[in-house]
Amino acid sequence: MTLELPTDISDRYELLADDLDGFDDAESLARYVLDGAAAELERGDGVGDAADSADDGVVEDRLEQLGYLEK
C-alpha cells in the first residue's frame, strides 16, 4: 500500500532520506518512522526513562577495587 504524504512533509522527508543512509525515498523513511513510533508506543511505559544519571564516584570506587586506580 502506498503511503500518501502531504507535499510539504514529503519534500522534507525526501531531503532527509537523501541525508540518511539506508532509505530509498521519502516514503520508505516515513514508513520506517511510523512503524518505529507505533512499536515504541506499543512497548508502553518505561521507554525513554530507563536510567538515572551515572555516578562517577561509584565507578572510581570499583576501578580502585579492581586495581585499575592507584590504591
Binding site: 518512522v33 515504541e40 508506543l41 511505559d45 521507554v47 525513554g48
Partner: peptide
C-alpha cells in the same frame, strides 16, 4: 523516534 516517543511517554 525513540527520543520523541520517550518524551511523549514522560
Amino acid at each position: 523516534v525513540r527520543s520523541v516517543v520517550g518524551d511523549l511517554s514522560a
